[in-house]
Design a protein around this nucleic acid. Structure first.
Lengths: 276, 276
DNA sequence: CAGGGTTTGGAATATCTGTTCCATTTTCAT
DNA sequence: ATGAAAATGGAACAGATATTCCAAACCCTG
């Protein structure tokens, strides 16, 4: 017991339970079956509530956890919770998880693993949340503009600069309002109501981005925003806005979902503009 | 208070929070923002742990819940938990299921679907192919450099500009060699063998990128390359190179995998450099 | 700038939760 | 059938948790 190889991730624990289930005492097998069939209950319930539903004593749950090598039920429950949690394991947890898998090849591999997982999760989550009609409206709005003003600084600059490049290739008139030369405000002042703006900003919202978007809005230029919360300062300014929540690893936010949305907007707008 | 219209489902609660957030006291607004941005933490954390992460007092969480009409925090938490229960599948399971069926509404949704699919595929494939030892060597090489010269134009510019931004934040000396002002060649001529270059280029390889990388290599500056084929003109120049094959949709290449690799390099290099 | 109400921090408290322990029952080898 | 070992139930306990409460700080309004 306490073999120190207790899995920290759900997949591993699942395998362990399946493997050990048959040569466990009767009550504990009962717990094992229940656990695999109701993982959400294990994750969210209390010892008492789970025991009642699984028709065992609370102590059986603790014993079950211990027989799997965990210190107590709470430790096992943490693994079930990680399955529900939209959080990429951190550095140490990742290390712990890889122990024994014998593919520890270096710390940068861990970082890579973390970032790719964060990217996958971000994209999956956006895919679930994005409202297609909202997307359609945004495309329509932007496609109708004479010129599209792209606003994205700091972390969002890669996104806006990508769009500027791609729009250029696709023959869509656009202006990348960036900070080089400090002419941003002047550039934005050329915009009219026939144009449109696309502002991208995430916590902590760069004040220049917000100011520029505001400037456009005041000139009655419709603005589409990509941001990360309903409380973003871009939201009250924007005609339409998208909420993109990126998973993060070690405090660094993935940008995969935002980039995918940006590419979508670029291509869809270009297509729409060409057709009508 | 206790208006008996407290939502029991997450969507309703979300709307309520968004609506009420602005006319709540300062601390409670802070809680509202945190709650919407970290719903999983609210669902799974304890009052103490959440309070710490949101940087408020535990009592603020209870007050927040009550001001929304709930009896206490636990009641509010139950709603956040229901959201996790309803989400039947976890990310990996969902990822597998997404393949193929997704109800598509408009044509732009189709584009979105295509791009996210391409991004997911690219990341998955890089995850399989990437050699951890190669990654480790690249990190070591770059971390040892006095200054890192970042070369990426056109389509690769978002990547290199992201790295420049992140390196800057992390205190790693770097120069983004871009085309603005036509001074690229001069900038690159400052590099010495104590520095390192990172060149990013994909088909059709921008001639300036290749030329700049070549210039660095001739000055005995070691160059790490990110490119898409063993036949890339960067390969013979580079000390080390990564092959990143991005899936494409309608001829537009995803950049998700490249971006993930770029983020990995940035963070891993910064960490390595800090340690020595 | 004074005085009212509101908001906030932080300690005190009452409740709930996981865990332990031990007497009782079951199981199984002899 | 018998005794030892393992498993089980259930109550007792220790610790953690949500909640309450009150004094201090903070805003406004007049």
């Amino acid at each position: 017991m306490t073999k120190s190889n207790q899995p920290r991730d759900f997949a591993g624990l699942r395998n362990l339970i399946v493997a050990r289930a048959q040569d466990l005492p009767r009550r504990l097998t009962q717990v094992a079956t229940y656990a695999l069939q109701n993982p959400d209950e294990i994750a969210l319930g209390t010892v008492a509530s789970i025991a009642q539903q699984a028709d065992v004593q609370p102590s059986a749950l603790v014993r079950f956890s211990q027989s799997l090598g965990y210190q107590g039920f709470s430790e096992l429950q943490e693994v079930f919770r990680s399955r529900l949690r939209d959080r990429v394991l951190n550095y140490d947890e990742r290390l712990a998880q890889l122990r024994g898998h014998s593919q520890i090849v270096g710390t940068s591999a861990l970082v890579f693993d973390g970032f790719t997982e964060a990217a996958q999760k971000s994209i999956a989550s956006l895919r679930e949340k994005l409202d297609p009609q909202q997307l359609e409206r945004a495309v329509e709005l932007l496609a109708g503009a004479e010129t599209i003003y792209l606003i994205g600084l700091r972390r969002s600059f890669p996104i806006s600069s990508y769009m500027a490049y791609a729009f250029g290739k696709l023959g869509v008139r656009n202006v990348l309002v960036d900070a080089t030369g400090g002419l941003a405000a002047e550039v934005a002042s050329f915009a009219s109501h026939k144009d449109a703006g696309l502002a991208i900003s995430f916590t902590p919202y760069a004040s220049e981005t917000v100011a520029l978007a505001q400037q456009l809005a005041q000139r009655e230029v419709p603005v589409v925003a990509i941001t990360d919360s309903p409380f973003s300062p871009l939201v009250p300014i924007a005609r339409l806005w998208f909420e993109v929540q990126e998973s993060n690893f070690e405090g660094f936010r993935s940008m995969a979902a935002t980039l995918s949305l940006a590419m979508t907007l670029t291509v869809a707008v270009a297509e729409r503009a060409r057709k009508g």
